[in-house]
Amino acid sequence: MTFSVIGRDAATGDLGIAVSSCILAVGRVVPSVRPGVGVVAVQARSRRGLGGSLLAGLTEGTSPSDLVRRAAHAAEDVDRQIAVLDPTGQVAADTGRGSLPVSGHLVGEGFSVQGNMLASADVLPAMSQAFTATGGPLADRLLAALTAGQDAGGDLRGRQSAALQVVSGSPATDDDDGVRLDLRVDDSGDPVAQLRMLRNLQRAYDERDYETLAVFAPEGARDLYAALAASRRGDRAAARSALEAMRARPGWSAWLASMAGDARLAGVSRLLG
């Protein structure tokens, strides 16, 4: 009923998971993640509490292979499908005999792909190949694998939801919660495509890509990003037009006044001064 990929970035130590399914809000059900501890995928007819139990085992120092072996021998988990990844890149997966066909898993170096009730046997090999062949940040490699799985058929029943989570390989602190990315599409006709759009939007926020945000940010904020984009490229007329559009909205003049000391808006002010 679900296909997913878990993986570790060898360069940064980040850990992550991407998953899609024809159920509502799969991000609530399949992933269990904790910075500095690991990532778990719990699929098929698994007990709802199994993900938490596997994370607890990782916290105690139990290896992914031992955790998977225990679950495989537990009578109550005969129908489960699980994958477990720790901060060092050790990974293990298992598909219980009660999982729905077509089902299975493939384990590689620092990653695994798994799925059940798949449209074809091509889904998992396509995901594995895409993950290993794609460069760049972990989030993009996870999304590439998920996209390849969907393109190969994905969930036999259709499409509804998807999720992408990336966390630090180091424990959370007071200054850093360790969450690098947490995006979910709970109900969509094309959730994997929607998840890619959210990833691109998140990248634009992170990288202060004002040109992109001027087009794709929520409508009420687009003029703000248009002003910032115009300031960056030195376009005085466009910056003034965007600021005038913002001031015309109720409440925005007061907000702009309160942000007078913000370094980004200071650039706009200098351009118009």
Rank of each mutant, 00 (worst) to 15 (best):
F3M: 01
D14V: 02
G16A: 02
G16C: 08
I17K: 02
L24A: 15
S32V: 07
V33A: 10
A41L: 02
V42M: 00
L50C: 11
L54N: 10
G57F: 08
G57E: 07
L58C: 02
L58N: 02
S65T: 14
R70S: 13
R70Y: 06
A72Y: 00
Q81W: 03
G89I: 08
Q90C: 09
A93D: 00
D94I: 03
R97T: 14
R97Y: 12
S99N: 07
S99T: 13
L100C: 04
P101M: 11
V102G: 09
S103Y: 04
H105Q: 07
H105P: 04
L106N: 06
G108L: 05
E109Y: 03
V113I: 07
M117V: 09
A119R: 06
S128D: 12
A130M: 00
F131W: 07
L138E: 10
D140E: 14
Q150K: 10
A152N: 13
G153L: 05
G158S: 13
G158R: 13
S161E: 01
L164Y: 00
V166F: 00
V166K: 05
D176H: 05
R180V: 08
L183G: 10
R184A: 08
A193E: 12
L201I: 15
D206G: 15
R208Y: 13
L213M: 06
A214K: 03
A227G: 12
R232F: 00
R236S: 09
E244C: 07
A245N: 14
W252Y: 14
S253K: 15
A254H: 06
W255E: 11
L256G: 12
M259V: 11
A260Y: 04
D262F: 02
A266I: 12
A266F: 07
V268N: 05
S269P: 07
L272N: 10
L272H: 08
